[in-house]
Design a protein around this nucleic acid. Structure first.
Length: 300
DNA sequence: ATGACCTATACCATAGGA
C-alpha cells in the first residue's frame, strides 16, 4: 500500500493536478492539508471518477484536512483529545466546530482515519507566525497535546500500525532548513522548543521516509526564487509507530511536483509543498490481527 | 542588487501562509 501526504494549498485550485499525480504515482491513500474549503466544496467527483473515496474536514477558507483513498475509510476523527483551539468561532459551523481544551474553537487541522487496519492522521500543525506571537504558544501546546495522544494510543495498543502524516511546520535538523530568511533564535520552524517537541515523538514514532530519502526539501516559498535556488525546507513528514515502520519498504519525496510544468502537461500551478510518500508491505506485519488481510486465521 | 508569490473572500485590500 502506497501512502502519501501533501499540503496541496487549495484543493479546488489544484484538484486535476493532484488526481493526475495520484494515478501517476500509484498512490493508495493520500493525506492532504490546506484544502482551504468546506467538505461540500471539495471536488469529490473528480477523485471518485479516479477510484478514490474522500473524507474531508474544513470549516472555511483556512486550513482544512482530508484523505483520499482507494480502500475503505473508517473511524473518522476530526480532532484529538485535549486539542487546543485558536481565534474566534467560525460563523455557521457551530454544528461541527468543537471547543478546545483552552476554551477556544478548534481549527480544521487534524483528521484521523483507519484504512486496511492502519491508523493514519492528516495533520496541519499551526505555523507559529513568530516566536513572540500567541500563535507560537498555540503551536507548542497543539504539539504537546498531540504527543500525549500518541503516548495514550500506543500505551493502549503498542502493536498498532499508526502514522502521523502532514505539514509539521518544523525543520527538525540543521540540514532541513535551506531558507536563508530563517535563523535559529529569531525564527519559527527552527527554534529549540519546536525541535525538542518534534524529537520528542521518538522513539514511539520515527521518520519513516528519511532512511530512504536522506536529503531534500518538501517546501519552497513562492517568493524570492526559493525553488530555482533550492532554498527550501524539509517540514512534511510521515512518522510511524514500530508496527508501521516494520512494514515500510520505500520512502520518496516527489520534488518534481514543485515545478511549474506538470509532468503530464496539465496547466495548473504547483503547490509550494511536494508530496511525501511511503510504501508499506502489510505481509511483513508481525501483528497477528493484520494477517487477516492475507489468510484466514487458524484457531485452536 | 538577495527582490521577484499565491489563495480565498462580504473582493481591487486584506489575512494567512512559512
Amino acid at each position: 500500500m502506497r501512502i502519501a501526504t501533501w499540503n496541496v494549498n487549495s484543493i479546488r485550485t489544484r484538484a486535476e493536478r493532484v488526481v493526475d499525480w495520484l494515478q501517476r504515482a500509484n498512490i493508495d491513500v493520500l493525506a492532504m492539508q490546506e484544502i482551504k474549503c468546506k467538505p461540500e466544496q471539495f471536488p469529490t467527483d473528480l477523485f471518485q471518477r479516479a477510484g478514490y473515496s474522500v473524507t474531508a474536514f474544513g470549516l472555511n477558507q483556512w486550513n482544512g484536512v482530508a484523505f483520499a483513498s482507494r480502500h475503505e475509510i473508517t473511524d473518522v476523527a476530526t480532532s484529538f483529545a485535549e486539542m487546543p483551539g485558536f481565534g474566534n468561532p467560525v460563523k455557521g459551523q457551530e454544528a461541527v466546530q468543537l471547543t478546545g481544551v483552552n476554551g477556544l474553537p478548534q481549527e480544521a487541522r487534524a483528521l484521523g482515519v483507519t484504512v486496511n487496519g492502519v491508523r493514519l492522521w492528516s495533520l496541519y500543525v499551526p505555523n507559529g507566525r513568530g516566536l513572540d506571537n500567541p500563535h507560537f504558544d498555540y503551536k507548542l501546546d497543539w504539539l504537546r497535546a498531540l504527543q500525549r495522544n500518541v503516548t495514550g494510543w500506543l500505551a493502549e495498543n503498542p502493536e498498532q500500525p499508526l502514522a502521523l502524516m502532514g505539514d509539521f511546520n518544523i525543520a527538525p535538523l540543521p540540514e532541513d532548513m535551506g531558507d536563508p530568511s530563517f535563523t535559529v533564535g529569531e525564527s519559527t520552524h527552527v527554534s529549540p522548543a519546536e525541535r525538542e517537541l518534534f524529537a520528542g515523538f521518538a522513539p514511539q514514532l520515527v521518520d519513516v521516509v528519511r532512511p530512504y530519502q536522506p536529503e531534500g526539501y518538501t517546501f519552497w516559498d513562492y517568493t524570492k526564487l526559493r525553488f530555482p535556488r533550492n532554498e527550501g525546507m524539509r517540514i512534511d513528514f510521515i512518522l510511524g509507530s514500530e508496527a508501521f515502520n516494520d512494514m515500510v519498504v520505500a520512502g520518496e519525496i516527489h520534488r518534481d511536483e514543485r515545478k511549474q510544468d506538470n509532468p503530464s502537461g496539465i496547466d495548473i500551478k504547483p503547490s509550494d509543498h511536494v508530496p511525501v510518500v511511503c510504501e508499506i508491505d502489510q505481509t511483513l506485519s508481525d501483528d497477528e490481527f493484520a494477517d487477516d488481510f492475507d489468510a484466514p486465521m487458524i484457531f485452536g
